[in-house]
Design a protein around this nucleic acid. Sequence first.
RNA 1: GCGCAGGUAGCUCAGCGGUAGAGCAGUUGGCUUUUAACCAAUUGGUCCUGGGUUCGAAUCCCAGUCUGCGUACCA
Length: 504
Amino acid sequence: MADSSYLARLMSDNTQPPAEGSHSTEEDLIAVRREKLAKLRELGVDPFGAKFTPTTTPGKLKADFSDGVKTTIAGRVYAIRDMGKSVFFTIGDVEGRIQGYLNQKGISETDWLVWKNVDLGDWVGIAGETFTTGKGEPSVKVESLTFLSKALRPMPDKWHGVHDRETKYRKRHLDLMGNQDSADIFIARSRMLAEIRSFLHSRDYLEVETPMLQDVAGGAAARPFKTHHNALNMPLTLRIAPELYLKRLLVGGFTKVFELNRNFRNEGISRRHNPEFTMLEAYQAYGDFEQMAEMVEEMVCHLAEKFCGTLKIEHKDENDEVIRTIDLSRPWKRANYHDLVKGVAGDDFFDITPEARRAKCDELGVQISDGMEDYEVVQQVFEKKVEEHTFNPCFVTRVPSELVPLAKVTPGGKTVEVYELIINGQEISPGYSELNDPDVQRQRLEHQAGGEEEQLVDYEFIETLEHGMPPAGGIGIGIDRLVMMLLGAPTIRDVILFPQLKRK
RNA sequence: GCGCAGGUAGCUCAGCGGUAGAGCAGUUGGCUUUUAACCAAUUGGUCCUGGGUUCGAAUCCCAGUCUGCGUACCA
């Protein structure tokens, strides 16, 4: 504790003429803050303080505000409005902010001196009593101040925050401290994930964790990331999907399982693709794709109602103009793949020769590369002309079997028991009646591997199926894209805290 | 990979051949109910990097780099 003559000296220090060399380069801004840090130490204050026990949070205090309540809160100082002998400031965190008020007469001499060394961005604890100002602002009148942590670097602009996309993504902490709308997205995302888990738990699903490091990356068509285990001296890949392991659990006797975690695909990065992304996969024994479709419909509507308060999701541009409304009202449209393609490419599209189909693609402006199989040509038309123009939910059924080797083939033969859910111009969720015939599965995976350079067949998986997998419905949901759709985020980078960027 | 746009003070941005600018933040002074607080004064720059054109380049040209958007690749 400082004695009073010491305090007097420090006070007089504060009335000295400006320190020489107090400029505004980044270096200088840091130097000024370091000087304050030193002054705090002189005052006997630890600038990187210890445990502090608030009675509530700034956000909760403001939400259930009433006057005359003793309270203790902690938070970062976001703004200071200094009026001489009294000071207003904003204190809080990503979940909420409230105004603090201090008056030189209302706090101890030491606390006043400590306050003089608080900068924007510092963390402090305050104890005091709530009141409402003349302008109606819920506030806390500070009676005592506890310094918690010094920010040695300046805050982003208090009004604009960080706007530069690169800085937002590379230094997400600056984005979060300066842009509440950005923080809100990640708070909402976190709560959505919790809600998805609770939705599945309430339906008796068990959450499981299967390997992310896999010997043979399977369960999807994508190039994997390669890595190496030193002790085992063996190459490993990061998983591209948990599917094959989750099915092993069905064979093992689990009847309802899900996994909600990261997949990794070594492919291009775009507005819709991040190399690591979050995927939900859920499997239900004795179910089929139609049952899974209903569950997805129910789940997504539940999330929309809970987090958006409506089934009509508005997407806005930078000027806050509504550019699109996605209507999630049930029941969702169901349409078959061929009919959708015929709708854009003509009723005779499947009756003409493959060559004529290619010519038709030219006409439609759909680009086709030379090596493409006929079904891939059709798929291009589907993606460019149907998928990208479908914003309201649509379950696409009777998908060609070549596209989905892990699903049951329909009795007819050419298509599979699958839905592909399209919302917001993107595939959000596929759902299958899972293929459980090991012989058919072997055939189809081998056929696929034959055509693909880096695709390997997971024979252990096939052996597992030979022990008997119950018929099952399965779904995958691309969580990032789902969150984008629900929150109206134009790019996947806005819903992933630390998106992958090139090294600078 | 290709095309287009962008990179200027700590942050948000203007300037687009002729002395590098504003707001916020910082510093100093004033102010006891303010709130993008206010008033007055003031500091702060490898104009992304490297070449070139020019009497003169943040500005024009070329190359590179990072970011964004589009496109291609990716069952």
